[in-house]
Nucleic acid binder design. Sequence first.
DNA 1: CGAATGCTGAAGCATTCACTTAAGTATCAT
DNA 2: ATGATACTTAAGTGAATGCTTCAGCATTCG
Lengths: 117, 117
Amino acid sequence: MLQHSPPLDLMFQALADPARRAMVERLCRGPASVSELAKPHSMSLSAVVQHLQVLQASGLVRSQKAGRVRTCRIEPKALRTAEQWIAERRTSWERRLDRLGQFLAAHQDEPDHGSKS
Amino acid sequence: MLQHSPPLDLMFQALADPARRAMVERLCRGPASVSELAKPHSMSLSAVVQHLQVLQASGLVRSQKAGRVRTCRIEPKALRTAEQWIAERRTSWERRLDRLGQFLAAHQDEPDHGSKS
DNA sequence: CGAATGCTGAAGCATTCACTTAAGTATCAT
DNA sequence: ATGATACTTAAGTGAATGCTTCAGCATTCG
C-alpha cells in the first residue's frame, strides 16, 4: 500500500502463465497473427484471444488489425521495465552484501570496541 | 503446453502482487521477521503469512525459525532466474531486429520497395 | 506460575482467472 | 451471392486468489 505501479502488476501477472510466456517467446521471433499464436496451444481460439488481451493490457504486446487479420508484436520497452525492476532489487541486495563485507573486513582485527563496561 | 517451468510460473505470480513486491523490496534491504514485514501493510498478520508462503513457494524467499521468531531473507538466485528469462527474450528480439536491419541494408538498392517519400 | 508475544492453521467468503461453448461480424475467395 | 476464414463478443463454470476471523501453540518475560 506504500506505492502503486499498475503496469508492473499486470506485467508480472501476464508473465505468470506458461501459455502467455509461450506467446511472448513466439512473438520475440517476429510478429504473428492470432491464429498463428493459437496453433501450438490445445485451447480454443477464444482462450488465446483472452490471453492476448491480458498481454496487451500489460503493455507487453501490441496489435493492429489489417483486413480480417490481427497482427501482434511484442513491446520490448515493457519487457525491459519488468527486467529492470528485478535488476534493481537484485543489485540493491548485492550492494547490501558489499557493505556488510566491508564492515566485517574493517572490524576483523578489532574484536571489541569498548561498547559497554 | 509445449514445456513446463513451474518455478517461473510461481515466481512471476509471486511478483505480480504489490504487497509481495513490497516485501521483496524490504527483504532486499536485509532479513526481517514476519511481523516486521507485516508492519507497513494494513492487512492481517495471517494475510501477510499467506503472501510469504507464496514467496517461499516461488523460491524468492527463504525463512527459518529461531525461538518464536521466523526470519525471512531473499534468495537472489531466484530473482536472477526471473531476470534472465526476460533478458533472454529481450535479446532474442534484439537479435531479430539486427538481422532485419542487415537484411534491409543489404537490399537497400533493390527494386521498388514502397517506402515513404 | 501466568501473561504477552509471535507465529500457525483452518474455515469462510467475495473476487478473479482460465477456460468453455455458442453465436455474431467483417473480410476475402470463388 | 455463398461460403470459408479470422476473429469478436457474451455468458457460464469450476478452481484459484486474497483476504478475513477465530482459535491454537510454542516461546519468552515478569
